[in-house]
Every structure is written in C-alpha cells, then in structure tokens.
Amino acid sequence: MSTAASHDPERLRRPSGPRSLTLGETKVSFVPDGSVQLTARGWLPDAPDEVWTTHADHLDADGCFAAGVGGLLVERGDRALLIDAGFGPTAFPVEPGTPVGEIRTGGLVEGLAALGRTPDQVEAVAFTHLHVDHVGWAWQPAPGSDRPAFDQAAYLVAEPEWKQRDLLAAHGTSPEMVAALAPRVRTVADGEEVFPGVRVRLVPGHTPGHAAYVISGGGRRLIAFGDALHSPVQVGHPEWRAYPDHDGAQAAEHRRQLVAELQQPDTIGFGIHFADVVFGRVRVGPGGPVWQPVDA
C-alpha cells in the first residue's frame, strides 16, 4: 500500500471535503469545487496493468482515482489569497475511451462562504497552471452574474506559463478562456513572494510554466504542488507520467525532487487532486516513499 491511510481506507476512494491547517499566523484551507474521475490506466499510462491489483485501494468502483477539484485558500489576518480556482459550474458524464470519467463541480464559492469569505475578499488568485480545472471560476461568469467570481482579484501566473499560453488549447483551455483571464493577469517569477509567507517555485513539466507555491509559517512549510503529482500512488513511482504532461521527462524529474523534499522535517504537501488526503507528508516505508495524511 503506497499511502498510510489504513485507519480509514475509504479516504483514498472519495474526494475531499473542506480541510484546514494552521501554519503559525497563516491558515490554509482546501475549498472543494467538486470531483472528477481519472481512469487509472488512462491517466497513468506508464504504470503496468498488474499495479492496479496491488493498489486497488486507490481506485473507486469504476477503476478510477476519485480526484478532488478546487482551490487552496490562504488566510493571514484580514487578507486572503486563493491558489487555483476549480473547474466552475460543470457536469460532464463519462466519455468512454477517454482518461477522464464523470465530472461534477461548482461548489467553490459556497465553500468559500462556509469559511467566512466572499470572492471579493480574495485579493489575488495564484495559479499553479492554466488547465481548465484550475481556472474555471476565474474566467466564466458566476451564477446570476455576467462577471467572473473573482472579478476584483489579480490573477498571478508564472511568466513562462503565460508566455507559452498558445499551447493551452491542446488541453482544453481555449483562446476565449485565455482572453477572459488576460485583463487581470500579472506574471510572477521564480522565488517571488506573492503574499506574506508565500513564494513561487517553478516546477515545469506538466505544463511549460507550471508553478508550486511554498507557504511558510509557525516553523512549518507547506508546498502546494498543483499537478506535479495527481495521486498518492505517484509518490512511490515518480517515474510514472500523467497523461496530460507536456514534458514527461521533465515532469518526472520534478516529481523525484518533490518527493525527496517532502521527506524533510516540518514539510507538508498539498495535493489538490489527492482524494480525501489532500494534506500530507512523505515518509519512507519498507517499500519506499509513502504519502501520510496530515490533519492538523
């Protein structure tokens, strides 16, 4: 088993609800937007078929990863930053022959409200990358409005991601979506502090300018690594590329580095698609590195 969640194995087969941690004066909260099924064999095409017998605990009844979709709210005092903006109000049935199963999303704004925040209280949305399941509420009109939910926020995008935005159409982010984002985009650089205690780290591979965000406080740090990893099972197999990776070799190298870094003391990871174990640390078990959920 590649994830230390044996106390409640069902957590690996369901998307996460709201979860929060504190890092000193900073509070971080996963804000769910909904869920998407990712077919194991389609999403991780390099994994041998027999692996899914060993790792059946990661799969739902349809043989899919139950991946969550949403954003990470970072709060410090009265200020708030959101990392990624979910898919937005969407419902797609299963499309046979594709690596994506059923998609049901649209709960992010309600999730923010449950945390005591409205979209206009979010000063910036920082994107790990610009795939459709991370930009939804930032470009499409909010229900009952003709404006995006985060109309008053700055949109922070890693400079190489924005520079190569013409490549996004191949992954579903249309020119119309990009045009809707453009007026609010501010590009950011590797190492830049974009919010108190939050710094950009470039980890290209999944997309040309994919970024992680390192959040520090209270003697701990959290690495929100976006789609550098899609499932806890990859922690033990960083060589397994994900179906949409732009540069598989580069993505694998960054996964290896990330898995090693997440083994360091006082270091926590945030995997936005990691079922109901979105916060965790990496520990080395008898079979290699494993994802160990962190709930406080």
Rank of each mutant, 00 (worst) to 15 (best):
G144Y: 07
S145D: 15
D146W: 02
D146A: 08
P148E: 05
F150E: 10
A153E: 01
A154F: 06
A154W: 09
A154V: 15
Y155C: 05
V157W: 09
A158R: 15
A158H: 06
P160M: 07
E161Y: 04
W162F: 12
R165W: 00
R165A: 00
D166Q: 11
L168G: 02
A170Q: 12
A170T: 02
A170E: 09
H171Y: 05
G172W: 04
G172C: 10
S174W: 04
S174Q: 03
S174K: 07
P175S: 09
P175Y: 08
E176T: 07
M177D: 05
V178N: 01
V178T: 15
A182W: 14
R184Y: 13
R186A: 13
A189S: 12
D190Y: 03
G191F: 07
G191T: 10
G191A: 13
E192M: 03
F195P: 05
F195A: 09
P196C: 10
V198N: 12
V200S: 03
R201C: 10
R201P: 02
L202E: 12
V203S: 01
P204L: 14
G205L: 05
G205N: 05
T207L: 09
P208G: 01
G209P: 14
G209W: 02
G209M: 02
H210N: 00
H210L: 07
A212T: 08
Y213C: 11
G218C: 10
G218Y: 14
G219N: 07
G219P: 00
G219A: 00
R220L: 14
R220M: 09
R220S: 10
R220F: 09
R221I: 01
L222V: 12
I223E: 01
F225P: 14
G226D: 06
D227K: 10
D227Y: 11
L229M: 11
L229C: 09
H230M: 08
H230S: 13
P232V: 03
V233Y: 00
V233A: 07
Q234S: 15
V235R: 05
H237A: 07
P238R: 01
P238Q: 01
R241F: 06
A242H: 08
P244V: 09
P244S: 13
P244T: 10
D245A: 15
D247T: 04
G248M: 11
G248P: 05
A251L: 08
E253S: 12
R256W: 01
Q257N: 12
L258F: 11
E261P: 05
